[in-house]
Lab assay of single mutants.
Amino acid sequence: MDVFMKGLSKAKEGVVAAAEKTKQGVAEAAGKTKEGVLYVGSKTKEGVVHGVATVAEKTKEQVTNVGGAVVTGVTAVAQKTVEGAGSIAAATGFVKKDQLGKNEEGAPQEGILEDMPVDPDNEAYEMPSEEGYQDYEPEA
C-alpha cells in the first residue's frame, strides 16, 4: 500500500510541476504579447503594419512553449490582441483601416495563427491545408 501511495504522490508532483510550467509559459506569452502591443503603439504610420505582424510573430513563438489545451486559448487571445492593436492603430490615425491585415508588401496577414497546427491532446499534428499553395516548377 505504501508503494501505491508513494507512486500516487510522485504522479501528483509531476502534474503540479507540469501545471506550473504551463502557467509560466502562458505568463511569458502574455508578456511578449504586451511587449508587441507597446511596440505597435510606438510606431509611426509606416511601421504600424509591420508592428502588428511582430506582435503576432512574438506571440506565436511563445505559444510553442505552452502545451496542451492552453495553446488553443493563448492563440485565440493573441489573435484578438493583434486585431485590437490594429483597431487602436486605425482609431489613433497611425494607419488607414484599409491597410490593416496586410503586410508591407500588401499581402493579407489573416491566418497567421489560424494555420498553425495545434492539437490540445498532444496526440497528432496535421499540416495546414494546401489550398493556398501553388506547385513550383523550376525553369529549365
Rank of each mutant, 00 (worst) to 15 (best):
G41T: 08
K97M: 01
E114G: 11
G41C: 04
A76Y: 11
F94E: 05
S87V: 03
L100E: 08
V63W: 15
Y39G: 02
K6V: 03
V70Q: 03
K21E: 02
E139V: 08
V48H: 01
K43M: 04
T59C: 14
T54N: 15
D98E: 06
M127P: 04
E131K: 06
V66C: 14
G14I: 15
A124T: 15
A107I: 07
A53H: 00
H50Q: 02
T59L: 06
S87H: 10
E57V: 13
E46P: 03
K102Q: 11
A90W: 15
A17Y: 10
G73V: 13
Y133C: 07
V48I: 14
A56N: 06
Q134F: 04
D98W: 05
K32N: 04
G36S: 07
G101E: 00
K45N: 03
D115L: 09
T44E: 01
M1A: 02
K34E: 06
G25E: 07
V66Q: 02
M5W: 02
A89P: 06
N65I: 06
E46T: 08
S129I: 04
V3L: 10
K58T: 08
E126C: 10
A53Q: 00
E57P: 03
H50C: 07
A17N: 13
V70S: 01
K12N: 01
K96V: 15
K23P: 01
G93S: 08
V77T: 05
A107L: 13
E104M: 02
A91T: 03
K45W: 15
E83D: 07
A27S: 15
V55D: 01
N65W: 15
D119Y: 12
S129Q: 04
A29F: 01
K21L: 09
M5P: 00
D115N: 08
L113A: 10
N65A: 09
Y39S: 11
K80E: 03
T72K: 06
V70G: 00
E105V: 15
S9H: 05
A69L: 02
E35A: 06
Y133I: 08
G36E: 07
G25R: 08
A89E: 02
P128Y: 11
E83Q: 07
A18W: 14
G68Q: 03
I112H: 14
T22K: 00
S42Q: 04
G36K: 06
G86T: 07
T75G: 08
Q134W: 14
Y39R: 00
Q99R: 00
V74N: 01
A56H: 07
G132W: 12
Y133N: 12
L38I: 06
Y136R: 09
A30N: 00
D98C: 13
A76F: 04
Q79T: 09
Q134D: 13
V55N: 01
A91W: 14
K12S: 07
L100R: 01
P108Q: 15
M116Y: 15
V15M: 11
S87K: 06
M116S: 11
T59D: 01
M127W: 13
E126Q: 09
G31H: 05
E123A: 05
P108S: 10
K58E: 04
M5D: 00
V66K: 06
A140S: 12
K6F: 11
V55Y: 02
V52P: 01
K43L: 13
V49S: 06
E57M: 08
V82A: 03
T33F: 03
I112R: 13
G111V: 15
E137W: 05
V74A: 12
A91G: 13
G51R: 04
V16R: 08
V48Y: 03
D115M: 12
V118C: 10
A140M: 08
V55T: 07
V63D: 02
G41Y: 07
P120K: 07
G14W: 05
E35K: 07
E83C: 01
G93T: 02
V118W: 14
E83R: 11
V118T: 07
A124C: 10
A30M: 13
K6D: 06
E46A: 10
Y136I: 03
T33D: 00
E46R: 01
G41H: 02
G47H: 15
Q109Y: 11
V16E: 05
E126F: 07
G106W: 13
T22Q: 01
G25S: 12
D121F: 05
V82R: 10
K102R: 02
A19N: 01
P120C: 04
E137N: 07
A89R: 11
E61T: 06
E131S: 14
G36M: 04
K43I: 15
V95P: 09
A85E: 06
A18K: 03
G86S: 13
V15Y: 09
G84Q: 15
T81Y: 03
V3D: 02
N65E: 07
E130I: 10
Q62T: 11
H50W: 14
S129N: 12
K96Q: 12
A19D: 01
A56R: 12
K6L: 03
T75N: 09
M5L: 02
K21Y: 12
T44H: 04
G86H: 13
L113V: 04
D119L: 03
N103D: 11
Q62A: 09
A107S: 04
E35I: 15
E104G: 10
P128E: 13
V40Y: 14
V71M: 03
T72R: 08
G86M: 02
G101A: 13
G7P: 01
K32I: 09
A124F: 09
D121A: 05
I88T: 05
T75C: 10
V55K: 01
E130G: 05
G47E: 02
V40N: 02
E61W: 01
E126R: 01
A107G: 09
T22I: 00
K80S: 01
Q134T: 12
A29L: 07
V118R: 04
V15H: 01
G86P: 03
S129G: 15
F94K: 00
G86I: 08
A78V: 06
G31Y: 10
G51L: 10
K12W: 14
G67C: 06
G25V: 02
K102S: 15
S9C: 06
L38V: 15
A27Q: 12
G36R: 12
G73L: 14
G51A: 06
Q62I: 08
T92S: 07
V71W: 09
Q99K: 09
G84S: 10
Q79W: 15
G106C: 13
E13Q: 10
E13M: 00
V16M: 12
K97G: 13
V55A: 09
G25M: 14
E105Y: 11
P128Q: 07
V3T: 01
A27G: 06
A124S: 12
Q109K: 10
D2G: 01
Y133E: 06
I112M: 13
Q134V: 10
M116E: 10
K21D: 01
L100N: 09
E110L: 01
A140P: 10
E13C: 08
V74H: 02
K6H: 04
G93I: 11
V37M: 10
E35V: 05
T54K: 07
T22S: 10
L38M: 09
K6E: 04
P138S: 02
F4K: 00
V3M: 07
E137R: 12
D119C: 06
D115V: 09
V70Y: 05
G132H: 05
E110K: 03
G67D: 02
V63Q: 01
Y133G: 15
A27Y: 14
T75E: 08
V66A: 06
V40I: 01
G73S: 05
